[in-house]
């Protein structure tokens, strides 16, 4: 498996650390309530198909990126830096 780091280009999966769904970017306010935090930290759509998830180019440039990917085929459709994904 290879992932396209926006800064470094195509790199082997073993250079990356995986973090899970990109909704982790939408961190609730501290007092957003139990349900909001439960949804943020635990509950997932967990799609069988296209998803957006977070990877860290740990053994490369250090960038955190959002990869658009298919969980059934492992096709990689897109990868952007998290700072661009937040906008």
């Amino acid at each position: 498996m290879r992932l396209p780091c926006p800064l470094c280009g195509d790199r082997d999966r073993r250079e990356f650390y995986y973090q899970g769904h990109a909704l982790m970017l939408e961190r609730p306010l501290r007092d957003a309530g139990d349900a909001a935090w439960d949804n943020y930290l635990h509950n997932r759509d967990n799609p069988a198909g296209e998803t957006r998830d977070l990877w860290h180019h740990e053994a490369g440039c250090g960038a955190w990126i959002v990869v658009t990917r298919n969980t059934v085929t492992h096709e990689v459709l897109d990868a952007i830096l998290v700072e661009k994904a937040r906008v």
Partner: peptide, 11 residues
């Protein structure tokens, strides 16, 4: 990595 592919990779 999240997957439904029932197959893995080399690393």
């Amino acid at each position: 990595y999240a997957s439904y592919a029932a197959r893995g990779n080399l690393p």
